[in-house]
Amino acid sequence: MFSAINRNVSKITQPLYLSRFQSTLVVVEHNNKNVAAITQNALGAAKQLGGDVSVLVAGTGCGPVAEILTKTKGVSRVLVADSDAFTGFVAESLTPLLVATQKQFNFTHIVAGASAFGKALLPRVAAKLDVSPISEIIQVKSPDTFLRTIYAGNALQTIKAKDPIKVITVRATAFPAEPLEGGSAKTEPAPAGDYTNSLTKFVGQELSKSDRPELTSAKVVISGGRGMKSGDNFKMLYELADKLDAAVGASRAAVDAGFVPNDLQIGQTGKIVAPDLYIAVGISGAIQHLAGMKDSKTIVAINKDPEAPIFQVADCGLVADLFKAVPELNQKI
């Protein structure tokens, strides 16, 4: 849906006098080995802001990540903060680092992807800088004017930020992913300090393991809803996913019923996806679910209820019992 809008963005060129004074800091999300895909989209948004782009890599043994970023085209400076204080990437440790970095370099924009990491961190940073943050933008209209969605994607709001520092999270699906190549930046240490915090301690993580592509960046996503009836029945979708090299997602109903873990939830309060192909199986298409997938290029719906709202947005619908249609589909492709 926003593809038409996004195409126009590339035509916006910043006047030179503006870009000369602009500088953006992109906060890199990573696991100390690899850069999270959403950071590439954040770099895409930073490029559209114009001006100089720096990145901040904070972590514990994050050298390999810094190294990747020095090779990213358009990045002029890679700031590195390597310390045990950043174990678990808790916002309470990262915020003072970001504030110190901002004090030293005076960026006009601080940007991160609108993931769980970015959403937890950037508002805390904005409050410390005494500015009002801007969540999950889908378009840069000018260095201080942005487009974002409100009411579960049912309205588009254009906002103009008056604060001198713009603290922004970026919706990944709305910006092109910058390739991590073609550049030759140098690393520099980020402002030194003791960033160990006494407020919050990271205990551990339980990550869902999957060999399939990551949900938010997959080209094809297959999602199951309440109509799947059980977690076991998701096997059909995994089989189809393997054939199409797709990620598997779910509606809130499927997650609440315990069919699949909650990190697979697509929607207003889950993940936002915009793949080339989205196949919704046994999903009615509630407003909250549509908010997470209606920018997909092609939407296919399989549902036995011809009145299901999902058919109003689907490019291709099949009114059929999913327990017959999906196995048949698995056989035929």
Partner: peptide, 10 residues
């Protein structure tokens, strides 16, 4: 609730 699963903090 984080992107890849769950995380515990104190």
């Amino acid at each position: 609730e984080i992107d890849g699963g769950l995380e515990t903090i104190l």
